[in-house]
Amino acid sequence: METTLAIVIGGLYAISFYLMLRRSMVKLILGLMLFSQAVNLLLFTAAGLTRGQPPIIPEGADALPVPFADPLPQALILTAIVISFGMIAFTLALTRRAHSSLETDDLDQLGRSERP
């Protein structure tokens, strides 16, 4: 399972960087989205895959039933997802503005702020 996921993560990274290197702004956004998914999946896989119980001590017991799932990476990923959700929303809004003011989605046209 880890091997499969590792290959998937590698593929996602490769695809996202390929998309980010394209000139189109839409592909840039797609690349960023895939990138954040790849990172989340990496966090999830690196923290160890277990098919476990929820990490809640049942009534009456005083220890967790084994095997239990590690809650921390899930909390981390949830936070990361929320953050990337906000970032992507902002990126979309920004790109829309950029598109309406530039009338192109070609990133090479973004040179004006560089030149005096």
Partner: peptide
């Protein structure tokens, strides 16, 4: 500003 923001955002996202 918009142009700058696109670059700034992409780089920081990465």
């Amino acid at each position: 500003q918009i142009e700058a923001a696109v670059k700034y955002l992409t780089l920081n996202f990465i």
